[in-house]
Design a protein around this nucleic acid. Structure first.
Length: 588
RNA sequence: GGGGCCGUAGCUCAAUUGGUUAGAGUCCCAGACUGUCGAUCUGGUGGUUGGGGGUUCGAGUCCCCUCGGCCUCGCCA
């Protein structure tokens, strides 16, 4: 095959007069009289090729060229006439005068999408022809970005003395948590492997195995409904360390991000990241994944509300609810009655029954509920929210969960609508001191908030029996710009405590042995204190790269229904395959 | 499982209150053009309006079902 001597972003006036060979895809052909120009593109860039009128045989071959043909061009570099220099191209000072053209591969017509970045192509078509979509420079850049970041992560952990260890993809189903993807066993009729939701138990077993510092860029699988930032298979930066406390994990990960920012983004990153206790995050921002690009916090006005005549506030407070609000300066004129109604409708998703609002306009509070407040109460409100002219205060009265979910949503939504969020700014924070358990009212039992291997907070061990819901854990989340990047914890290394947790989760002894027996056994043989974290690699790339969806940083992503329009998976399989797997399908 | 938006030429879109033969740009084909670079100019090809059913004199438009895409609530230890 013809070998290329240069790539398509390489030639400058330095190479003037040199004989070169380039190989690439034909981008666009311009025929002017008897001269023919075309742009040749490879992954590095583009170069203009001229087929001169002095070579009729070559022109004849050039006539056969079409969009996205793969062609090898032999020719001589020459400087363009000064008036025809194209400053938009790296190679715009030169062109290659073709002496030979070899069509290596023609391209089917019609071409199903445009490679040109200036054109928009629907995402469905992009997914169907992902291999063509990938030819777009922005997608090449996204793939390179992902590679560079992974490379940087591996180098960082390597230098810190970590070992990257592969863990199995065919493993044991451990209910609790997300729905598993199952793989039927041919050799064991009626039995199934599960694809890992995370390598959780394996990385702990590696600690028991004396590895001390483990990391892995690990594929994980969860059979749950999708979102813009959720795929059925995704990638985690998975980390586990022995003999550590939370702060050791924090500084290790901060070091990783500092390295990424320095090498990949070439911008400074301020460390350490702020640490915020879970309870404080909920009180101040209504969420355990606050967007700290925005300083505005929620305010509790229950003490004012309880003295007003407003029935809605009274009722909420009587039912152990709260009245809280959030104030946006300079927002009043942007929110008409109609838009405020839309906000009220939107928070119905979170079971909120209503939205109260106050605008400060012409130095006066304007509000449908103004009549329920005395002048001094209005004054108190304005002071509490530091509400100046043109401020907009949004208030929700309900149970704490509803109030926090609603106001957190409104905080994010208005910040976005008002253009207060700079996507070039990266605000990290650690959320700490999570509760160990939450109550599942449907199953009438406790559930682990993080996972059942999470160590209780040492100061709260005494609460496990009498008030488990008040017990804190040594779990933590890392949040970036309002998105949860991942979570981790210090693990339980004491088999008695681990068994105690399983009991509190009301797992029957038999069940515990069946699911986790091997793991409890392992804990008995000298388990080092250990802990770790797992971060969503795709989400990190999405945020640092300024993408709207993690699909943009995954070469071959799936749709919202977990399908692939390109390969057509999932798909039916033959009866023979099913027979071998001892599976019969339900009719209907 | 629920809610919202969407589906018209290969691609990106338009089509008035339900009213003539569903248009435009681009792509492709042919011709013209000796410095273009999203070339330009002239002409041409290209349609099961996602699919099925219904209402109507008449459906891209209204109704029902269905398929597909995107967003979102629930869900995601």
């Amino acid at each position: 095959m013809t070998k290329r001597t240069h790539h398509c972003n390489q030639l400058t006036r330095q190479e003037n007069d040199q004989n070169v060979t380039l190989i690439g895809w034909v981008q666009n052909i311009r025929k002017i009289g008897k001269i023919l120009f075309f742009t040749l593109a490879d992954k590095h860039g583009t170069t203009q090729i001229v087929v001169p009128d002095s070579n009729p045989n070559l022109l004849q071959i050039a006539q056969q060229l079409g969009y996205q043909y793969v062609v090898a061009v032999e020719g001589k570099v020459r400087l363009r006439p000064p008036k025809d220099v194209n400053l938009n191209m790296t190679t715009g000072e030169i062109e290659v005068v073709a002496s030979q053209l070899h069509i290596l591969s023609p391209c089917a017509d019609p071409f199903p999408l445009s490679i040109d970045e200036r054109d928009t192509v629907s995402e469905h078509v992009r997914m169907q022809y992902r291999y063509l979509d990938l030819r777009r420079p922005s997608m090449q850049e996204a793939l390179r970005f992902r590679h560079n970041l992974c490379f940087c992560v591996r180098e960082y952990f390597h230098q810190q003395g970590f070992l990257e260890v592969d863990t199995p993809l065919l493993t044991k189903s451990t209910p609790e948590g997300a729905r598993d993807y199952l793989v039927p066993s041919r050799v064991h009729p009626g039995q199934f492997y599960a694809l890992p939701q995370s390598p959780q138990m394996f990385k702990q077993l590696l600690m028991i195995g004396g590895v001390e510092k483990y990391f892995q860029i690990a594929k994980c699988f969860r059979d749950e409904d999708l979102r813009a930032d959720r795929q059925p298979e995704f990638t985690q930066i998975d980390v586990e360390m022995s003999f550590v406390e939370p702060e050791d994990i924090f500084s290790t990960m901060e070091g990783m991000f500092a390295t990424i920012f320095q090498r990949i983004l070439q911008q400074p990153l301020s460390t350490p990241f702020p640490r915020i206790r879970y309870s404080e995050a909920i009180e101040k921002y209504g969420s355990d994944k606050p967007d700290l690009r925005l300083e505005i916090a929620l305010q509790d006005l229950s003490y004012i509300a309880q003295n007003t005549n407003f029935r809605v506030f009274q009722n909420a407070l009587q039912q152990k609810g709260v009245v809280k609000g959030i104030c946006f300066p300079n927002a009043a004129q942007h929110y008409s009655r109609k838009k405020l109604d839309e906000l009220a409708t939107a928070i119905q998703d979170f079971q909120a029954k209503g939205l109260a609002w106050i605008k400060i306009q012409n130095q006066q509070p304007q509000s449908p509920i103004k009549k329920f407040f005395s002048p001094s109460q209005l004054k108190q409100l304005q002071t509490l929210f530091q509400a100046n002219e043109n401020a907009l205060i949004l208030i929700v009265a309900d149970s704490p969960n509803v109030v926090h979910a609603s106001l957190s949503y409104l905080r994010n939504r208005l910040a976005k609508e008002l253009g207060l969020l700079d996507d070039q700014h990266f605000a990290f924070c650690w959320i700490t001191d999570y509760p160990l358990f939450e109550y599942n009212p449907e199953e009438e039992r406790l559930e682990s908030l993080h996972h059942p291997f999470t160590s209780p907070h040492p100061n709260d061990l005494h609460l496990l029996e009498k008030d488990p819901l008040s017990a804190r854990s040594l779990a933590y989340d890392l949040v970036l710009n309002g998105v949860e990047l991942g979570s981790g914890s210090i693990r339980i290394h004491n088999p008695q405590i681990q068994e105690k947790i399983f009991q509190l989760l009301q797992l029957p002894q038999e069940e515990i042995q069946k699911r986790f027996g091997f793991f409890l056994k392992a804990l008995q043989y000298g388990t080092p204190p250990h802990g770790g974290i797992a971060l969503g690699l795709d989400r990190i790339l999405m945020l640092l790269g300024g993408f709207e969806s993690i699909r943009e940083v995954i070469a071959f992503p799936k749709t919202a229904t977990a399908a692939c329009p390109m390969t057509g998976c999932p798909s039916e399989v033959s009866d023979q395959q099913l027979n071998e797997l001892h599976i019969s399908l339900k009719k209907g």
